[in-house]
């Protein structure tokens, strides 16, 4: 498997990178972890004439809480997320998903932000971000904009990131002081894309749900935010009946297709079961 020829740029600064993107637009493709892009290039499903390798730009590899949110830089590898103390202690939905991303060797290279930009509807991070109401920071020579994840994910393998923009960071809001979350993934084997993935997040105050997030993987043209299920949870106290209702609503929000992984009915029912299990697990292990 042999990629087509391209011109290679490895800018040393963010400014250089943005200038290259401004100059080349759609001809340029950003290379971060490369774990989605390079396989596509090897299969010649992608043949960008220009590669902008951002790996030599300093300062893009930090995980930090700052200004009321968690900030994950464009070069933060999945490996680092898996081993991050702040994520393990404060962002349980992310912590649960991290070890399920692809496989351990791929996680050493693949990046969180790169995965979001790839916008694979079977990608796990999109659902996690939907559940957590995250956003993506896009920078260009013209300036910076913060794009809520729901607006960022635009369709299968398409985002609203412009060709001259670089996604420099992802942001996740502070979870508050009483919260819980998890990620459940039905995969046929390690390294498989999700047949169904479910991200859940709950913030509570004195037993009452103050914020709920549910994201669904692999059951639609993009990752799906199960808004009705979230709304049903907010303001209630977690009970079996409420969980079943939220799970039912989440299953209704799913729009799966029948394929080799299973029928649409199957996937929808797994969404129901997983949302219920995820909420139960979250309710059982709150961080306070």
């Amino acid at each position: 498997m042999f990629p087509s020829q391209f011109t290679y740029h490895a800018p040393a600064t963010l400014g250089e990178a943005l200038a290259l993107l401004a100059e080349h637009g759609d001809d340029a493709k950003v290379l971060a972890g490369g774990q989605s892009l390079i396989p596509l290039m090897k299969l010649r499903f992608a043949a960008p004439p220009i590669i902008v390798d951002i790996n030599r730009i300093p300062g893009l590899d930090t995980i930090a809480e700052e200004g009321g949110s968690l900030r994950v830089g464009a070069l933060v590898r999945n490996r680092a997320i898996e081993r991050s103390d702040v994520i393990t202690s404060r962002y349980p939905t992310m912590a649960a998903a991290a070890p399920m991303i692809s496989d351990p060797v791929v996680r050493n290279q693949g990046t969180f932000v790169g995965s979001l930009c790839h916008a694979d509807p079977q990608g796990d991070w999109g659902s996690v971000m939907l559940a957590l109401d995250g956003s993506v920071v896009a920078r260009s020579v013209a300036g910076e904009r913060v794009i809520p994840i729901g607006e960022f994910l635009d369709g299968p393998f398409t985002s609203t990131l412009r060709a001259d923009e670089l996604a420099v960071e992802a942001r996740v809001p502070d979870p508050g002081s009483e919260f819980a979350g998890t990620y459940l993934k039905l995969e046929r084997k390690v390294g498989d894309f999700a047949t169904v993935g479910v991200a859940v997040f709950l913030a509570t105050s004195g037993g009452t749900v103050t914020k709920a997030g549910i994201g669904l993987t692999g059951v639609g043209a993009t990752n799906i935010k199960a808004t009705a299920a979230e709304q049903a949870l907010v303001g209630g106290t977690v009970s079996d009946a409420l969980i079943e209702e939220a799970a039912r609503l989440a299953a209704e929000a799913a729009d799966p297709r029948t394929d080799i992984r299973g029928s649409a009915d199957y996937k929808r029912d797994v969404v129901r079961v997983y949302v219920a299990r995820g909420l139960r697990a979250a309710a059982a292990t709150p961080v306070a």
């Binding site: 290679y8 290379l31 490369g34 390079i38 590669i51 390798d53 790996n55 290279q109």
Partner: peptide, 10 residues
């Protein structure tokens, strides 16, 4: 790392 999924220049 999987050396099939990285360019030598990297």
């Amino acid at each position: 790392v999987k050396s099939c999924t990285m360019f030598a220049v990297q």
